[in-house]
């Protein structure tokens, strides 16, 4: 069955900045249509992991395969590999001197050498899907944070990537804009897009993930389906991490008890 063939396979990945070991022997597989959500404390290496997959960071050892081809061997041409890997960053980096449509078409036209009418039709369909077709001639500065991030997602999607990487894409958004961006990603999951998502939105992680990867200090501590991970985390570190998101209600009449503890 083709569904079992991994789109992305990482084997024993090591990454360090000078002396600081950020990723220490990480292995994982993403199958076609699978949604992996990577969570963990700050500095655990989750963003670095995404940047390594997209070749934005050199790695020290290990192997990354995309559809069975190694992309870490010296022969890999990163600009071609990246056309198959869509990435959306935390700081929605649209190109400020181009309008929405030009932003989206830059990759398809210049990197992929596609024809404008066909690429533009696809871009319009995608913009329509995220509810921004009427903004196609707007410039980034005329858009809200949530709108910019949706355009950034469309820009990555328009390259028809094999896999999408999301690096804390809602972390710098106002709360009321987080939802519109997460809804777009949920929509992608429904359509069977293969994705690796780094996020701090736990409710969203639970809703969208096929599998939760919990990272700490550069290694995968726990890897489980979302229900299992959030209900019965196996590791002590995962339990501690999840407790951060859990607030015990402290009511006035209980103040007395709390002080005694």
């Amino acid at each position: 069955m083709t569904a079992l063939k991994p789109v992305l396979k990482i084997t024993d990945l090591h990454k360090q900045y000078d002396q600081l070991k950020v990723i220490q022997g990480l292995s994982l597989e993403v199958k076609k249509g699978q949604v992996l959500v990577v969570i963990g404390p700050s500095g655990c290496g989750k963003s670095t992991l995404l940047r390594c997959i997209n070749g934005l960071e050199p790695i020290q050892s290990g192997d990354i395969e995309l559809n069975g081809d190694s992309i870490t061997s010296g022969r890999a041409r990163w600009n071609l590999v990246r056309q198959k890997i869509g990435m959306v960053f935390q700081s929605y980096d649209l190109f400020p001197h181009m309008n929405v449509m030009e932003n989206i078409l830059l990759g398809p036209l210049k990197a992929q050498g596609r024809k404008r009418p066909e690429a533009e039709a696809e871009a319009e369909a995608l913009l329509d899907r995220v509810g921004l077709l009427d903004r196609k001639n707007s410039y980034p500065r005329q858009l809200s944070g949530g709108q910019k991030q949706r355009v950034a997602i469309v820009r990555a999607l328009c390259m028809n990537p094999e896999i999408m990487l999301f690096d804390e894409v809602t972390a710098s958004l106002d709360p009321e804009m987080v939802r519109e961006v997460l809804d777009v990603i949920l929509g992608l999951a429904e359509r069977g897009m293969t994705m690796i998502i780094v996020t701090h939105e736990m409710a969203f992680a639970r809703a969208v993930a096929d599998k939760i990867i919990f990272m700490d200090q550069g290694v995968i501590v726990e890897s489980a389906p979302p229900e299992q991970f959030f209900e019965q985390p196996v590791s002590e570190r995962a339990r501690k991490f999840l407790n951060i998101f859990h607030f015990d209600g402290v009511k006035k009449e209980e103040t007395h008890n709390v002080e005694n503890n």
Binding site: R82, F89, L106, G107, K110, A111, A152, A156
Partner: peptide
Amino acid sequence: ESGRAVGL
């Protein structure tokens, strides 16, 4: 980096 990410 965004330019790289779209394969340029």
